[in-house]
């Protein structure tokens, strides 16, 4: 609505410059510098040391574990997210708002607590501790625990992106599909999901980025066993605590690159999603 107006707000130029510079200085200090520090420190000992750090067996194991845990977490939260969004957005039932609030719960929980709960359930002194021990199954201090903690902290991401959009889109197209003889799965895959594809992708990307970068929750359940139960963020911590700074930053730089790619994807998708929302609003107003 302000597209046709000139950009001046009536703020005098000196004020505009001062505020802009102040804002940029703040961002420079708090955002740009840390980012630069990661790459600066990573290359402090030169390229060879950099490559060595990220290709060394423990680092590779950490990368593999990160990819595995994130992959499983994203996949399972994706299935859940679609199921929950279908139930919430396309049907009317009591207690819907309660369900939506519960889905947001993991956001309100500190990562450390997210790890703690699984230790309480599956740990040696936890609920199932004895049973697991008897069957020689390890969850806490092993990969399954890491996967569980990762699932917990990324739980709401996909659902949160899908639900509002699917609610705004209503059920007309799905009903039309049913009236034309389509079955439930056909309606889901041919009509509903294509209509939300950008938001779905956005949710997956947020979920993946968070899953790969999670530290606190995974740290609690992991046991920090080198080469076995360290994800990339944990490996960074291990290296750092050994004063092996350049190597720590080298691995960290991989995560930073991932973050930058994520941000670029987010920007692109946000643009696409805004288009979808504005088309929805245009439809709502009368037309010829």
């Amino acid at each position: 609505m302000n597209a046709l107006r000139s950009d001046s707000t009536g703020d005098p130029a000196p004020l505009r410059w001062a505020l802009t510079l102040l804002a940029l200085a703040f961002l420079g200090l708090f955002v740009v510098l840390p980012l630069a520090a990661v790459f600066g420190q990573a290359l402090a000992k030169g390229w060879e040391a950099y490559w060595a750090a990220i290709s060394e067996p423990d680092a590779l194991a950490a990368i593999r574990l990160t990819l595995l845990a994130s992959g499983i977490a994203v996949l399972s939260n994706l299935v859940f997210g679609v199921a929950a969004a279908w139930a919430i957005a396309k049907f009317q039932f009591r207690g819907k708002n309660v369900l939506i609030t519960l889905i947001d719960l993991p956001f309100a929980v500190s990562p450390v607590i997210a790890g703690l709960i699984y230790v309480l359930v599956f740990g040696a002194r936890g609920w199932f501790g004895d049973w697991l021990d008897a069957h020689d199954i390890r969850i806490v201090f092993a990969v399954p625990g890491i996967v569980l903690a990762t699932i917990f902290v990324t739980f709401p991401f996909v659902a949160r992106e899908l639900i509002p959009l699917m609610q705004s889109q209503g059920t007309d197209e799905e009903e039309a599909g049913i009236s034309l003889g389509a079955g439930g799965w056909q309606v889901l895959f041919r009509i509903t999901l294509p209509n939300v594809k950008w938001s779905l992708l956005y949710g997956i990307i947020l979920c993946t980025a968070r899953a790969m970068g999670e530290f606190g929750a995974v740290s609690v359940v992991s046991g920090h066993i080198r080469g076995q139960t360290n994800t990339m963020p944990l490996h960074v911590e291990v290296l750092y605590n050994e004063y092996n700074f350049a190597a720590a930053f080298a691995v960290a730089s991989l995560l930073a690159i991932l973050a930058l790619v994520t941000m670029a994807a987010m920007s692109l998708l946000e643009w696409k999603m805004r288009r979808v929302y504005s088309e929805l609003q245009a439809e709502a107003s009368p037309e010829a």
Binding site: V38, P111, G213, P233, V236, S267
Partner: peptide, 16 residues
């Protein structure tokens, strides 16, 4: 860039 603190893993931010 404003999204960086949101996207960057906390451990990376911590050591940086």
């Amino acid at each position: 860039l404003v999204d960086l603190p949101f996207a960057l893993p906390t451990a990376v931010a911590g050591i940086a």
